[in-house]
Simulated assay, not measured.
Amino acid sequence: MNYKPLSDYPRDAVDRLLNVIHLFRDIRATSEWQYDVLLKRSRLSTLAPGEALLHAGDVDQWVYFLLRGELHVHVDDDAAAREERPLAVIRPGEVFGDLSMLLAKPRSATIVAAPVGQEVQVLAVDCTLFGDLEDFSLLHLPTKLVFYRNMVHSLRWKLEVYRSKYPAHELANSHRRLKLYTGPKNSKEELVALAGQARDLARILLDWNAEFGSGQLAAEESDMTNFLESILS
């Protein structure tokens, strides 16, 4: 795997590339300086077909955005398991790695580039920047609010995909029962509430994903992925 910091690329090319990602576009609209801070803690990874990006059991604080190509998700890390049908497929425009970051848990799956097809390009963002909700020395309150709003939005959409497919499932309305924040907007209180909501949504999604790998849900994986791609693009 080859990866480079974004500073190694021409700035105009980076801006065009990241303008399609809601998080970067929204932060840039809030503050050009904060956007620059985030660029310095981000990198582009390029993978050849079949090459691994993440391994089950890895511990890190990166969140990923697939820009080009296709990634396959496997529960097992051994090479033989990669020959089998993947648990899920990640396509351009999708965010992944957020559950591990939000819940501070090891990676639960191995993610590899599709064994055939084009070169894969992934943007990785170091999210240790967002973890401390008391520290605004580097990233300011509005920037952290943008991040957690994006995380909550992405997680809710993923959960709605499951709900639309399985409306009678016991988990179907779990995320809708979570209490929404109703206090002052653009405040530290909202930030804390959004971070808590993101973690709660991540736990529910983990429960869905556990069943998703059991067989019944995996049977309709491609339909779910295509639907997710359409609503996130």
Rank of each mutant, 00 (worst) to 15 (best):
S42C: 01
L99G: 00
W157D: 11
Y166I: 01
T225W: 08
L201A: 02
N226V: 13
K185I: 09
A198F: 09
P167E: 04
A56L: 03
R199H: 00
L102T: 08
D200T: 01
L171T: 03
L39P: 13
V14A: 02
G50S: 08
P142D: 11
A29S: 15
L133Y: 01
E190N: 00
Q216D: 02
L180V: 05
G215M: 04
V125G: 12
E189F: 05
I231S: 10
S45M: 15
L194D: 04
H72V: 11
L6W: 03
S45E: 05
A198R: 01
Y166F: 15
N173R: 14
L178F: 04
L103K: 13
A56F: 02
G215K: 03
F24D: 04
T128L: 14
L23A: 10
R25S: 12
D135P: 06
L217V: 12
I90P: 07
N226P: 01
L67R: 03
A202F: 04
R43Q: 08
A81R: 09
L54E: 09
D12A: 13
T46A: 10
L141Y: 13
L54T: 07
A104D: 07
N209P: 01
A124D: 13
D15S: 14
P92E: 12
E220D: 12
H140I: 11
C127A: 14
G57C: 06
D60W: 04
V59F: 14
E70R: 14
D200G: 08
D223W: 09
V146T: 11
V59S: 07
F96S: 10
Q216T: 04
M1R: 08
